[in-house]
């Protein structure tokens, strides 16, 4: 079943997918203010320009705080939902899981504006906390998807063996289940972290005066002179997310191998 046509199609498709990411470092190191071909020369100047803006570091600090907090909370909430949906049968499971997974397909703008309406109506001031509220909501479905596959590949008899040997549900969870789904937890944390770091709409709606990284980047696009520096920043961001994803993928696969399951594919 060899098909040279399909294979070349797949390669072209991957080229299309990777085109923007491949161009990014080219322009980050290109010695020109204009983003166009032909390239004029090599420079690392844009990284210097990027690093000279103190606003960037303020935004980055805010973003890291939001992303770490959101990822931790989303993974905790994801653990509860994934465990409940893979282990128990209970009334109202379908609608509840549907609601929890809904943000995966709901346009971000709807999440952002509906939260904004409620937050303003209650009179809560806009801050990093309100951004976290929204980001946790958006990360939970991804966390549930990853952790569900981790829980599904768990062998139920391991848990029953622990009960028979006198462990309580709590100690069984801590000693048996948690270590086995740990790789899933790590990959859920990293994926949620990446989503939160990248998210723009909710961050700009609910951030008030606090600037986060995505809002900073969006603002810079308005000034053509700042674009090369943003290319430099983008190169660093892409490199960091590829590293984080590779780590997440490593842990996800190790988790599946650990519990003796079969690898069925990617994150989604």
């Amino acid at each position: 079943m060899k098909s040279p046509f399909l294979k070349s199609y797949a390669v072209v498709y991957l080229l299309f997918l990777f085109a923007p990411i491949v161009l990014l470092p080219l322009f980050a190191f290109n010695d020109s203010k204009i983003i166009a071909f032909p390239l004029t020369g090599f420079t690392t100047n844009w990284f210097q320009v990027m690093a000279d803006d103190p606003n960037l570091f303020k935004a980055l600090k805010n973003s890291l705080f939001i992303a770490i907090t959101s990822a931790a909370l989303a993974t905790c909430l994801g653990l509860f939902a994934a465990r409940a949906s893979t282990r128990f049968v209970f009334p109202g499971k379908g609608p509840m899981m549907g609601l929890i997974m809904l943000p995966m397909v709901l346009p971000d703008i709807i999440i952002g504006m509906s939260l904004l309406i409620v937050v303003l109506a209650i009179g809560v001031p806009l801050s990093m906390m309100t951004i976290i509220l929204g980001h946790v909501l958006m990360c939970v479905p991804f966390s549930v998807a990853i952790l569900s596959s981790a829980f599904q590949s768990l062998d139920r008899s391991l848990e029953e063996a622990a009960y028979d040997l006198g462990e309580t549900p709590a100690s069984t969870f801590r000693l048996i289940i948690l270590p086995l789904v740990m790789p899933g937890i790590i990959s859920s944390f990293l994926i949620s972290f990446t989503i939160s770091l990248d998210e723009y709409i909710v961050a700009s709606f609910l951030g008030g005066s606090e600037t986060v990284l995505s809002v900073y980047i969006y603002g810079q696009f308005r000034f053509p002179a700042r674009v090369p520096a943003i290319m430099a920043l983008g190169t660093i961001l892409v490199a960091v997310s590829v590293v984080l994803l590779t780590i997440a993928e490593y842990f996800r696969r190790r988790g599946i191998a650990k519990s003796g399951g079969k690898d069925t594919g990617g994150f989604l």
């Binding site: 905790c76 128990f88 209970f90 009334p91 499971k93 509220l133 929204g134 939970v140 549930v144």
Partner: peptide, 21 residues
């Protein structure tokens, strides 16, 4: 079983109800 399942899902479900629904 239903009770354990409901108890287990409640933190996430309550969050989704309060912040989404």
């Amino acid at each position: 079983e239903a009770a354990s399942g409901l108890a287990m899902i409640s933190p996430t479900a309550i969050y989704a109800i309060l912040v989404l629904a």
